[in-house]
């Protein structure tokens, strides 16, 4: 829990720091995220994730370009039931559940094609992912908690529905680099939510 608090506090500092640059207005996004694992992530947990949220602040530094910060949380989970695994001469049977908790903490830059009726944009986030991966057999589990370098290109739109408020939708690819002992993790995220422009 301490690590999670650290991440959230760091995210607040990044958001406020980034948006402080924004003298020409900006956008806050609050969204629900779905995750569809790819590569090693899908190999580890084959089920998609419908537990995700993210908050992002962006400030315009020119007519078409924003910089900002994004914090998110995506939980992948699957109950594999009773499984038997063999590694070399060793075999274990137990009730298996797998979890991936991924928390991206990104500095972002976006280019807006239009900022009139509909905001459409393309951009990228670069920063770190905190990954808490758990492979549980019975009451025992193999923990894997790492901070990793990562990036996240995205494309999306904001459709205004009222004064300063709009629906937002985007697709973002998440890539968390491998570490010495852990595989690369990657997934496609689809986010929908609300935007608040200021």
């Amino acid at each position: 829990m301490k690590k999670i608090k650290t991440i959230i506090i760091s995210a607040v500092f990044i958001f406020t720091g980034m948006t402080a640059f924004a003298q020409g207005g900006g956008i806050w996004n609050f969204q629900y995220d779905m995750g569809f694992g790819m590569g090693k992530t899908q190999d580890f947990i084959s089920a998609p994730s419908f537990r995700g949220l993210s908050i992002e602040g962006r400030g315009f530094i020119s007519e078409h370009i924003t910089i900002g910060g994004r914090f998110g949380w995506q939980t992948f989970y699957k109950d594999y039931g009773k499984v038997t695994r063999t590694s070399g001469t060793q075999t274990i049977t137990g009730y298996n559940k797998k979890y991936i908790n991924a928390m991206p903490l990104m500095a972002t830059v976006h280019y807006y094609f239009t900022t009139s009726k509909v905001y459409s944009y393309i951009g990228i986030g670069i920063g770190t992912y905190y990954l808490d991966i758990r492979d549980q057999m019975g009451i025992y589990y193999f923990p894997d908690k790492t901070w990793r370098f990562g990036f996240s290109p995205d494309i999306g739109v904001v459709v205004p529905i009222g004064h300063n408020v709009g629906f937002t939708g985007n697709i973002h690819y998440n890539y968390a680099a491998k570490t010495k002992d852990s595989d690369t993790q990657s997934w496609i995220g689809i986010g929908v939510g609300f935007s608040y422009t200021f």
């Binding site: 049977t93 137990g94 019975g138 009451i139």
Partner: peptide, 12 residues
């Protein structure tokens, strides 16, 4: 977990 789901069997 139910109690029975906590069981593990390890052989080598």
């Amino acid at each position: 977990l139910t109690v029975s789901q906590a069981d593990n069997v390890l052989t080598r």
